[in-house]
Structures are given as C-alpha cells and as structure tokens.
Design a protein around this nucleic acid. Structure first.
Lengths: 349, 349
DNA sequence: CCTTCGCACTCGCTTGCTCGGAGTGCTAAA
DNA sequence: TTTAGCACTCCGAGCAAGCGAGTGCGAAGG
C-alpha cells in the first residue's frame, strides 16, 4: 500500500514521528493529550491513545511505568532516523563559522584533528571524538636514515600527511653515513607514493639486501615501516564530555562513570567506530545497537572524513539516545567536510 | 615552648590532627563524642568540645552548620600537611608493582608518560595527570634537512628524548640535496648536545648564512628549532576522572562539570602545575590555594620527575580536599621515580 | 584554673502521609 | 471507526513528626 512507511500506516507513522520529536525536544514522556494539544493531529486524544497502544505493541514505544506517557524504544528511534525524520542542512552562515573556527588551528595534523573535535563537541553540545587518520591508508613520502654511530642510527619516515615517525635502530655491522644515504635514496625511489600498507615487509627486505646490507639493516627498515604504519592507529581526540552533564539522563552518576571510563580507554572508543569504516557514509547507532549494556541509553552518530578519495578517519558524536539526530548529522557532516579540506594544508606533496 | 606546633599547644595539635584524619577517612563532619570514642584521647568529649571551639576560632576548623560536627578548613589541612601528618613510604612490593606496570609501556616517550598517568590515576583513585617533558629543557641531538624539491624540504629535529619534530619549509632560491646535507652536518657539529633553549635564533641564522645560504633558509632553520622547542609544551596526559565520581563531594554535578572542563582545557591544567616548576620537590595546594573558586574544594599534589639532574615534568593528583595526603605523596613520588628511570630507555645518546 | 557532667537547644535527615496532576484503558455512544 | 466519559494508577511535590548527632553553657569537681 502506498500509504505505508516501514509497516506502519500513515497516521501511525506520523504519530510515532511526533512522539519522538516531542520527546527529543522535552525529555518528558509524552502523553496523548499533550500531543493533540501541541500538534494539530485532527483526531482526538482517545484515538491517539489507541494508536499509541498499537505502537507500543509493535515495539516502537515504551512506557516507563503505568500511567505515564510514552517514550521511544530503540526500534522507535531507528524507524524515526531511517524513515521519518526530515534531514537537515547547515545554513551558509553556519558552514562559514565552522570553516572560520577550523582556521584557528595551525597546519599540523594533530592540531587540526583536535580542533575539529573541540568544535564539534561545542556545536553539538555533546561528547564528540575524532579518530586521527589511519596511517596505513596514508602513502609513503620519504624515508631518511640518520647515522649516529657505526652501528646505530635513527630511521625517519614521512607520510603524505606529514606524520614523521622515528625509530632508533642498532646494527651488528658497521655502516657509514654514505651507506645510509644510499639506502634512503633507494627506498625513496622504490616506494615513493605507495600506500604504507602496501610497503610489505618482503619487498622492504629485498630492497635493503639488494643495496648490499644484511639482515640487521633489513630488520631495522622493516621495524621503521611497521612503526609508521601502526603508530597513530588508535589515536583519538575527544572533547565535550562536560555537555553530557546538562542532560537529565545523567543525573544518575553511574551512567556518567561508564562514559568517563570509556573515554579513557581509547581502545573501546575505537571499537565503537571501527565498523563504521565499512560503510562509506554516515551511520547512526542507537542504544543497544552499541553492543554494550552500559551504553544502552546512548546513541552514536558517526561520519567519515576523507583525504582525497579515501575515508581516513571518523568524526563521532556520543550522546543520550534522545538526541536531535538530523541536526547532529548535519553538524558532523559539515565538520567532516571542513576537516577533509584542511587536511590538504598538511599534505606533503 | 617545646610543646608547640605551629602556634598550637600539643593537645590542640593532636586534636586537629585527629579531626583531619577522621574526616579524611569518613567524609562525615566529626563531632566531639565520636572523636573521644574512636580515639583514646584521655580527656572527655566536653574538653574536646572546648578545644574544638578554640580551633574554630583560630580558623583551623569550620562548621557546616550549627549543631554539626567540625570539618577542616584550608588552614587546617595546611597545618596538617605541613606539620602534623606522618609521611608515608611505599612498601617494597608496591614499588615493585609500579615498576612492573611501567614496563608494559613501549619505549616511546608518549606511551611512557601516558602509562604513568594511567597507573597513578588508578593507584591514587583520583584524577592524575602528567605533563610531558618540557622540550626546551631537552637537548638537541640531530637535525636533518630533507630535500623534496628545488625550493622545499622538511626539517627534522631529534632531541635527547627522541621527540622528532618536523616542519615543512619553502625557499625562495634553489638548493640541492647536497646543500641540505652540508647544512645539516654543520648544525649537528655546532649545536650537538646543547639545550634546545640555548639554540638561540641569532646563532642559528649566523651558522646558516656562514654556510652560504640566504635569509629564507635561515628562517626555515629558525622555525624548525622553534617548532621543536615549543611543540610538546603543554602536552598533558590525564587519567582517572571516573574515580572522582566515587567521592561524596561530587554528588553535586556542577562540581564535576568544572573538573571536566578543566580537563579539556589543557591550558588551565598546565597553569595549575606551572609554578610547581619553581620548587624542586613535592608541593601540595589546598582548596583556595589553587586560585579558583571552582576548584575551592579540591586539592592538588604535584611531584616533579627528572631526566638526569633536571626536573623536566610534573606528576599531579587532583582530588577532593579530603584526600589522604601522605599516601598520595608517596604514590606520586614512587611513580615519578620509576618514570624518571624509564626516561633513560628512550634517550637518544 | 582546668576538666567534666548534665542539660537544654538546634538543625538536618529520614520516614510517612496526603494530595494533585497527568495519563491510561475500558465501555458505550455517535 | 472515532469519540466522550469515567474510574483507576502512579509519580512526585510538599508537609509534619521524630530521631540522632552535635553544640554551648553553667555548675560541680579535682
């Protein structure tokens, strides 16, 4: 039937949308009378009551207790996000303001990422976090092996986003500064422009040995590349936790503790967004979809940002399930866009 | 008189110490009866009551409201910390455990610092934070200028703790890779081993020009050194905020918000410990001594850690004024010691 | 003169109670 | 199928009483 949305007839869908909208706005369970008074539904509260009972039976709404209003369930939010809400766009002035504020950060990768998480946290009024660009999706730019003594040195690797990773190495055989320069040049010539993850250990070893070096040097080179590849992996910049305190759902201090703990365990934070890397566009996880009882009344909005064609990191907003999804999606997308642009300022060409 | 401590006769001092001790232990205002029952004071509660009234008049104790027990004031805690409490030492097994846990971090400066803040936060059951080594107290080890194109390159600077800072530069005149190598060698020969803060801009420029380069190259070199000097300045690793939620003083959510905000503004966090750099040993700041009304019922314990002879950073514990000062000082000192040792693992010799 | 005892008083916290408001479900009529 | 009416439920605010811990002070005691 043309009038159905997600298995709900038009009126049910509209009532569900209104309930979710109203609950997001007020934070209070919404009752049938309040709804008919505030929104022009064209039917009486008794009708709404019947529809609400159906929606509850269908799993879209819940009642905190008898004789209270209705509250959306995970499924209710899900339907709202997928089918009912109207997407928002940022206004031109908002875009401009985001761009201006991002300009405050110096052209350093870390600063730009941190600035975007601060900005997003403030704009969204929620906890925001941004993963640093996955270094294995960056490409290799330069290697430089620096001679310290006959049997030791420092390997420095520069990637397309300018992240220099450095590692000390020790050798079993003597080398000269010229040896290291020769090897550096060979590495640069052979790997320049490749993705870091495609600089596999075998060809690194092969190249090193073809320059006349032994296993020790090959191991040092491999270690340097592995270091560069994994270095910034779970680096995450988070910001805006204090906004969560404004939400009534955090009157309960235990909730808050879960959040703070998660904030400090970057590992967990990273896992939350990890599977968003599979999908190329924005993703929303609601309540239990986050896979943890502790986080069951939170939601997460995740949007990728790009370097060139490639999605290299994620901007996320974590907040109460009762969050203005359309608005936050727009804010996250806008920030992601600006962040993507600014990445070109730190690019090593 | 031999029996006086800080202007208090022996009995008053003992009662003050007991009140502070008991209040730290229980978190409840302590009354005269409770005190005489729990501790063997040898006098009746009425006497204690009189003494307490004196201590209150002297500004050492406060009453939350009439007919409640007494609570230490800033001055009361101050006297306790300075003169009354008995210092603690860590047991051998505790030291060992700290050392073991610090071994989990890889030999990378950032990881070691982060590990120590996590560890201290957990052991102290409070918010702990650790400043990264001030880079201007580190010494210069190596510079390497990498040729990218005729008029651009990357400058990499390695300090004694292995922090490689990198900066892109653009030139007005062409250079060759050999030019850059020559200049790198000159910089290494001239500045090796100096403190970064002693690599002043004038001598950098002079050296660059004496190698036959122009103002543009001199500016690039200066910028690289300034970048290295200021890079990690306010870098702070914090951990353990969730423990604060266990403290009864944070039932009030507004308190918590101040803390979270401060946590995110690394600037403020840094200011808190900044003047501790002047004193070579542990320092304790109590309540209003922190200089902010928001922080008035918190205290801060700060202990320096060293690289060689020099204090290069600070470990701090921020928690409720009602904190076990002696214990936390011992924990912070123990962690600082271990952190200092581990710094040698990342040293670039 | 300092210490102790006894006593009246204060104040905050907990418990129990009432009461109003908002909301529901059900039944019967339109 | 929608609506009006009604009885019922439940939460939460507001209030009063009682309890307990503590104080200050005057009088008695060493």
């Amino acid at each position: 039937m043309e009038n159905e949305v997600d298995g709900l007839d038009k009126r049910k869908a509209y009532i569900l949308a209104t309930v979710v909208y109203e609950y997001i706005a007020t934070g209070e369970p919404v009752g049938s009378q309040a709804l008919t008074q505030k929104y022009n539904l064209g039917v009486s509260s008794a009708t709404v009551r019947n529809e609400m009972a159906d929606l509850e039976a269908g799993g879209y709404l819940e009642q905190p207790h008898t004789s209270a209003g209705r509250v959306p369930s995970d499924a209710g939010y899900r339907t709202y996000v997928d089918a009912l809400m109207s997407p928002e766009e940022l206004g031109a002035d908002e875009r401009r303001r985001i761009r201006d504020e991002m300009r405050d950060a110096r052209a350093q990768l870390d600063e730009i990422v941190e600035q975007s998480s601060r900005l997003l946290g403030r704009l969204a009024g929620n906890l925001a976090f941004v993963t640093k660009p996955q270094s294995d999706t960056q490409s290799f730019r330069y290697a430089q092996l620096i001679w310290i003594a006959e049997r030791s040195g420092i390997a420095i690797i520069v990637t397309s986003l300018g992240v220099a990773s450095q590692s000390l190495f020790e050798l079993r055989n003597d080398v000269t500064p010229d040896d290291l320069t020769r090897l550096s040049n060979a590495l640069n010539a052979h790997f320049a422009g490749r993705l870091l993850r495609d600089c596999d250990e075998r060809s690194l070893s092969a190249l090193t040995k073809s320059c006349g070096f032994g296993d020790d040097m090959a191991a040092a080179v491999r270690a340097a590349f592995v270091g560069a590849r994994t270095q910034e992996q779970p680096g995450i910049s988070a910001s805006g936790a204090q906004h969560l305190l404004d939400q009534p759902e955090f009157r309960d201090v235990r909730k808050l503790r879960s959040i703070l703990r998660i904030l400090e365990e970057q590992r967990t934070l990273y896992d939350l967004v990890a599977d968003a890397f599979d999908s190329p566009s924005a993703s929303v996880k609601i309540g239990h979809e986050l896979g943890s009882e502790e986080l069951a009344d939170l939601s997460l909005v995740t949007v990728p940002y790009r370097f060139g064609e490639r999605a290299v990191g994620m901007l996320s907003i974590l907040g109460p399930r009762r969050m203005p999804y359309a608005r936050l999606l727009a804010l996250a997308s806008g920030t992601a866009e600006t962040l993507s642009e600014r990445l070109h300022d730190v690019e090593v060409k």
